[in-house]
Write a protein that binds this DNA or RNA. Structure first.
Length: 1095
RNA sequence: GCGCGGGUAGCUUAGUCGGUUGGAGCACCCGGCUGAUAACCGGGAGGUCGCAGGUUCGAGUCCUGCCUCGCGCACCA
């Protein structure tokens, strides 16, 4: 083992930079994995980010948690390989390119050329790869970015094709329609996630429309907020259980706003509950009708030319739908099959004609109405209202008063295109679906097997999502993505291609059947437009074209567990050995994203879960609690902190700031605080050890081994604390409570190790001689520091590696986890190992709970002493002659320590409580309340206010004390002691609450004490002067002191000053004036001047 | 609207099974200590534990309702 070299001052940025270079040179990441070869595998799967956006601080958070778990498991002896990954398909990529090339519609893209466009996309996905790489390396996220999986690679695409074919073969893939939010401007439908970006509150006209029944003078009233869907109306839905009324208008209303109306005598049908809400006329109820009884009634279409009836028998009739409510509208839902999801489903069930009245360009198609044809639907609202208001309505088959009853401005949130800001239209599109509803039970069963952190995400949010699972609309009418590998003939014959070889074979078959195709080489680009060019042949000899869709890019990433290995074409063993994966970790926003698609794909393709553990992280907010976003300009750049406090402090801060699943308010000031507290402190403890170890040539191995039992109590204490804290830390890791674990360890480093152990041990190392005590201290510091380094290493990997290497010669990332290495055990897996064997591999010093409790008390007494002095107005440097510790455990082992801490010349234990204390009784509600019931407060007061508590306690102990009829037993009271009047004393409870301990100080002043106190003050001033003069520690000085009105300084105290301050000569003047350059100060009425000159 | 998670000092947070006196840290003020670091120690000020009810001898903690923030779902007529 090497001898440590001196630590030097801390420059975290330089330290981390140098270490990164070193790691890279020696291949530290690979070595940390290789060192565990033979251990059990722990499989991590990287959720692939897209590199066409700049990485931000939230990515650093996610990568910290990924990294720390992988590093932790590695130290536990598992083999943790970490393949990087990139998500490279999808709309965000296309949009970036569209913006850059100013191609704002599908027509423009196609005019530009699909090949050229996709080439641009392929290039664009690497825009920020360098930035990602730099961030990843700088924060020390250890992941293999040199051999990542990339979703656009042919091998990757081929695996996804294979998966798609598995679904197809099981009948899980089907072609259908779906009503999707659609932007006519861009010719694109949007996923729910994108839609969510664009909700805006808008006020639009809503209309109540009269649908006049056939063979009946009455009209059914329906309401809609989208007048442009009215030409497409083909049905009216009523709730079968809802009660409707038929009313007759008896008089005009007092007032009327806007268009529409009704004439006296006209009859209307609507839900009874909504009469008051909807009707403005005076009416009488003619009849009550159950919704079910309205079903089947036919009515006149508003726009008779707009939709051909075809062979539908149900078009323009009243239909039954159980989802109809009476919360708003009229209780009758206008149904336009192609422009609403419910409408579409109802239309399909009821057999309504599925006919578009609106084109893909967002304009009415020819034949809807002469005034509307070819016009953008959203600009027709007022014209439609006018047409409805005209006599008989647009079809001239309505009421004489027109078919509009009322118009009403309606304020609601409506989705808008997040790119162009235009309102989206719900629009029925051809789409491909994965029948997730068919495997719902399996999804739920597999989800139950996942260990979720926090558990409520799995049970709650994710479980909820699965219980409501819908078929997955997997196709996108876009260009840059994995092409849907389905070819289809005009007659609906279909072929799903599952590999390049299969494609080649099919192309050959088609060529043989007489079709002409481009060549299909082994490295054929599995993207549009290349694959679109192949025409395959159907079993009946018909040409088949590829369905012109690409797949939802979430499908790509959902295939990662196997596509990253090009399974099943390559890497079979790798896949078999790594599925399902042990651990994934992403933001909670991935619940419906990656968490879901992984499970969806693994369930449909392998009938298996995809991951065993999932850590779902909270969102990152700024210091004000606002979501970080570019538009708000509140994005924190991780480099601001990497370049100031370093990545260690940044990572440690993020982990300690709160539970991983809670929203993290990222506060830049907190990073600075973490640096100053945790890392600077740790460094200085290390520096203290390393500098003396270097000076003394300390070698942890070469030195005589020294058992912990032979070391002083202070050492045994800090080692025991280390054990206790390490166990709690480990337990926190196991339960995903990294924040609690790290806070506790930080508290140990700052308070126990630095502020107590090192502070109390400083003088031990100053000793020039090689004493056993000094050696004990060095061994202890070595053990504590190396263990702390190993515990910290997964979270903050830099500084501790430097420390660990200097103290042991070994990188910390190859060191064993102090609580054992289960992964290295015979027969272990990531899920199970022999706990006893694990414990046997742990390496922690012995624990001594009573010593820990005793030391806690000692530290409290030291603090109490300072409080006593403040209260008694006695300065800390003026010694007290005597102090007494009254009652409590035997602390004689620590009397020396307390004498120093308290600046008391002699501490003694005092047995006689009554000399300084009196007794106070307090009720113990936990014991008292159950038997005292209502009287508990009266009894409590009686106990608290007892005139003679000693007598009462005696009675209680004798069993003869009864208050309010309740027998009081010793358990019912807490016995406390407090100091009597006239003593400078304080009483405190021991940690376990078992006993009270008092500290009493003698406040007498004697000439000897005053002399000693003055010597302390002078020493302190001289030392400050030395420091101000920037003298070397070993430099000697020449000292002169002038005192006025001061206590006499005893010879031994003069000697003390001289030796403490390394004064070669010390002259004390008790008369005469000090020269101007001397520094003066006052202490307890005395005036002192000191003059320090380097000798 | 539905679901999940929050709301505790100016800020960040701990608070166990309900136990009567709600702890820390940062910042602020006063004092102390220091050849110990951006440190440390003591004290002070700062709290309607989101609001209102309820259960209980006793509620930050349990129950109900409401307000509010975040997220997800739905926003459908």
């Amino acid at each position: 083992m090497p001898r440590p070299s001196p630590a030097g001052d801390l420059d975290p940025v330089a330290l981390e930079g140098d270490l990164l270079k070193r790691w890279s040179e020696e291949g530290a990441f690979e070595a940390s994995i290789e060192a565990r070869r033979g251990g059990a595998p722990f499989i991590f799967l990287e959720g692939p980010p897209t590199a066409n956006g700049k990485p931000g601080i939230h990515h650093v958070v996610a990568r910290t948690y990924k990294d720390l778990v992988c590093r932790w498991k590695t130290m536990q002896g598992f083999v943790v390989e970490r393949k990087g990954g990139w998500d490279t398909h999808g709309l965000p990529v296309e949009i970036e390119v569209q913006k850059r090339l100013d191609l704002m519609s599908n027509e423009q893209i196609e005019a530009f050329g699909m090949q050229a466009f996709n080439d641009a996309c392929r290039e664009s996905v690497w825009t920020y790869e360098q930035a990602w790489r730099e961030m990843t390396e700088r924060m020390a996220y250890w992941v293999d970015l040199d051999d990542p999986y990339v979703t656009l690679d042919n091998t990757y695409v081929e695996s996804t094709w294979w998966a798609m074919k598995r679904m197809f073969d099981q009948g899980l893939l089907y072609r259908g329609h779906k009503v999707l939010p659609y932007c006519p401007q861009t010719g694109t439908s949007y996923s729910s996630h994108e839609v969510a970006l664009g909700y805006k509150e808008v006020e639009e006209p809503s209309v109540y429309v009269k649908f006049r029944l056939v063979d009946d003078e009455a009209s059914v009233l329906a309401w809609t907020t989208t007048p442009w869907t009215l030409p497409g109306n083909v049905g009216l839905a009523v709730g079968p259980e809802v009660t409707y009324v038929r009313v007759r208008v008896t008089a005009d209303p007092e007032a009327w706003e806007g268009a529409g109306g009704a004439t006296v005598g006209e009859e209307l049908i609507l839900a009874e509950d909504l009469m008051g809400e909807v009707l403005r006329h005076h009416v009488e109820v003619v009849e009550r009708i159950q919704g079910a009884d309205l079903v089947g009634r036919a009515y006149h279409p508003l726009f008779p030319e707009a939709v051909p009836r075809g062979d539908s028998t149900t078009a323009w009739t009243v239909l039954s739908a159980d989802w109809v409510t009476t919360t708003d509208g009229t209780g009758v839902v206008h149904t336009a099959v192609m422009y609403g999801e419910d409408d579409y489903h109802l239309g399909m069930e009821a057999g309504l004609p599925a006919h578009h009245t609106v084109g893909m360009d967002g304009a009415f198609v020819e034949g809807v109405h002469p005034e509307l044809d070819g016009r953008y639907v959203k600009s027709c609202d007022q014209d439609i209202i006018r047409l409805l208001s005209s006599e008989g309505g647009p079809g001239n088959n309505g009421a004489a008063s027109g078919v509009l009853y009322r118009e009403k401005a309606y304020l609601h949130d409506y989705p808008h295109c997040w790119r162009t800001d235009h309102p989206l239209l719900y629009y029925a599109m051809d789409s491909w679906f994965v029948r997730m509803t068919a495997v719902k039970d399996r999804l739920l069963a597999f989800n139950d097997q996942v260990e979720w952190a926090p558990d409520w995400v799995g049970e709650g949010r994710f479980g909820e999502w699965l219980r409501n699972v819908k078929d997955w609309a997997i196709s996108r009418e876009r260009y840059w993505g994995t092409p849907l590998p389905v070819w289809r003939s005009e007659t609906g014959e279909m072929l799903c291609v599952g590999s390049i070889a299969e494609l080649q074979a099919e192309v050959e078959k088609a060529n043989a059947a007489g079709f002409e195709n481009p060549a299909c080489p082994d490295d054929v680009d599995l993207h549009r437009p290349v694959v679109d060019a192949y025409t395959l042949v159907s079993p009946t000899g018909l040409p088949m074209q590829r369905e012109p869709f690409v797949m939802d890019c979430w499908f790509d990433s959902g295939c990662a567990p196997f596509a990253q290995w090009h399974h099943p074409f390559d890497g079979g063993e790798r896949f078999d050995a790594s599925f399902p994966v042990d651990y994934i970790c992403e933001g909670v926003d991935q619940t419906r994203g990656w968490f879901y698609t992984l499970l969806a794909v693994s369930t449909t393709v392998f009938d298996s879960p995809a991951y065993k553990r999932c850590l779902s992280l909270g969102l990152i907010l700024d210091a004000e609690g606002k979501k970080m976003s570019k538009s708000r300009g509140n994005i924190v750049d991780p480099w601001d902190h990497f370049n100031r406090e370093g990545a260690d402090a940044t990572r440690w801060y993020m982990v300690t700031a709160g539970a991983p699943w809670n929203p993290l308010k990222f506060d830049s000031n907190g990073v600075r605080e973490t640096y100053a507290k945790m890392f600077l402190t740790l460094w200085n403890v290390y520096k203290f050890h390393a500098d003396y170890a270097a000076l003394d040539g300390y070698d942890a191995e070469a030195s005589e081994p020294m058992g912990v039992a032979d070391r002083p109590a202070l050492d045994r204490w800090v080692l025991s604390r280390l054990n206790t804290v390490a166990q709690a830390y480990h337990e926190g890791f196991v339960t995903w409570d990294y924040h609690k674990a790290c806070r506790e360890l930080e508290d140990f480093v700052v308070n126990d190790l630095s502020n107590w152990y090192v502070r109390r041990s400083r003088r031990r190392l100053w000793d020039g001689a090689q004493t056993a005590d000094k050696l004990a201290c060095q061994h202890t510091l070595h053990e504590v520091l190396t263990t702390v380094c190993r515990l910290v290493a997964p979270v903050a990997p830099f500084m501790v590696d430097v420390i660990h290497r200097n103290l042991t010669g070994e990188p910390v990332h190859q060191a064993a986890w102090p609580l054992g290495v289960p992964g290295a055990l015979e027969g272990a897996t990531a899920d199970a190992w022999d706990a006893d064997a694990e414990a046997a591999t742990a390496n922690l010093p012995p624990q001594d709970a009573s010593l820990e409790a005793t030391m806690a008390l000692v530290r409290e007494l030291a603090e109490t002493g300072r409080r006593i002095r403040v209260d008694a107005n006695r300065r800390q440097r003026l010694p007290c002659r005597e102090g007494w510790i009254v009652a409590g455990p035997n602390l004689s082992e620590f009397h020396d320590l307390l004498e120093e801490e308290l600046n008391v010349e002699a501490i003694q234990a005092e047995a006689d409580l009554d000399r300084f204390q009196r007794l106070v009784l307090a009720p113990n509600f936990r014991a008292l309340a159950p038997k005292a019931r209502q009287a508990v407060n009266d009894i409590a007061n009686a106990i608290k206010n007892a005139e003679d508590p000693e007598a009462m306690l005696a009675e209680i102990n004798a069993g003869s004390c009864t208050i309010e009829g309740v027998a009081i037993t010793p358990e019912d009271v807490e016995v406390r002691r407090t100091e009597r009047e006239g003593f400078a004393a304080m009483t405190l409870n021991t940690q376990d609450g078992e006993a009270q301990v008092s500290l009493v100080l003698d406040m007498a002043e004697t000439p000897a004490l005053l002399s000693r106190g003055l010597a302390r003050d002078i020493t302190r001033r001289v030392q400050a002067r030395r420091k101000a003069l920037d003298l070397a520690i070993e430099a000697t000085i020449s000292l002169q002191v002038w005192t006025i009105n001061a206590p006499d300084l005893a010879a031994e105290d003069r000697q003390y000053i001289a030796s403490e301050t390394r004064a070669a000569e010390a002259v004390f003047h008790d008369e005469g004036d000090a020269p101007a350059e001397a520094e003066g100060f006052e202490v307890d009425g005395a005036t002192v001047h000191v003059l320090v000159v380097e000798a």
